[in-house]
Simulated assay, not measured.
Amino acid sequence: MDSRHGTVFATGDGRTAIRFERLLPHPPEQVWEAITDPARLSAWFPAVVDLDRPVGTELFFAVTEEQQRRFGMVDDPERTPNGRLLRSERPTVLEYEWAGEVLTWEISPTPTGSRLVFTNVLSDPEAAGPAAAGWEAGLEVVEAQLDGTPVTWDPFTRAEELAAAYE
Rank of each mutant, 00 (worst) to 15 (best):
E126I: 02
L86Q: 09
E143D: 08
P77I: 07
G100R: 14
A99W: 12
N120E: 15
W135A: 09
W105C: 14
P125A: 14
P81H: 00
E136K: 09
R79Q: 14
P91V: 06
E89T: 08
A132M: 01
L139T: 02
T104F: 02
R87S: 11
V102E: 10
E106Y: 04
V121T: 15
S114T: 13
I107L: 13
E95H: 01
W105E: 12
W135D: 10
G100W: 12
L86A: 03
S88Y: 03
L86F: 07
F118L: 15
R90P: 01
V93P: 02
D76Q: 03
F118C: 12
E143V: 15
R84G: 07
L103M: 02
S108A: 14
A99G: 04
P111E: 14
P91L: 00
W98Q: 12
A132F: 07
P109N: 03
R84S: 12
L122M: 11
R79T: 05
E101D: 12
W98G: 10
A127F: 05
G83F: 09
V117Q: 13
L94W: 04
P125I: 10
A131E: 13
G129N: 10
V102I: 15
P77D: 04
A133Y: 00
D76G: 10
W98L: 08
F118D: 03
Q145H: 03
Y96P: 05
E140Q: 10
P111W: 09
D76P: 05
R87V: 13
V117H: 10
P81F: 02
E140A: 08
L116H: 04
A144D: 15
T80V: 09
P125D: 12
P125S: 14
L116I: 05
L86G: 02
L86C: 06
G129T: 06
V141G: 10
A133L: 00
E106I: 11
V93L: 15
S114C: 11
G100C: 13
A137S: 14
D76Y: 11
E126K: 14
S114N: 09
T112P: 01
E89L: 07
L94I: 07
T92Y: 00
S88C: 07
T104H: 04
G129F: 09
A99P: 00
R84H: 08
Q145A: 00
V142I: 06
V121Q: 15
P91Q: 01
W98E: 11
D124Q: 10
Q145L: 14
R79A: 12
Y96D: 03
W135V: 11
Y96Q: 01
T80L: 05
W98I: 11
P77H: 07
S88W: 00
A99S: 12
T112C: 02
L94P: 02
A131I: 13
L139E: 02
W98P: 11
L103C: 06
E136Y: 01
W135I: 05
A99C: 08
W98A: 06
R90L: 00
E95P: 02
V102P: 10
N120M: 10
S123D: 14
R115T: 12
A127M: 13
A99T: 06
S123I: 07
R115I: 03
P111Q: 07
G83P: 11
E143L: 10
T110W: 03
V121M: 13
T92N: 01
T104K: 01
L94A: 06
G100Q: 15
G83C: 06
D75E: 06
S88H: 06
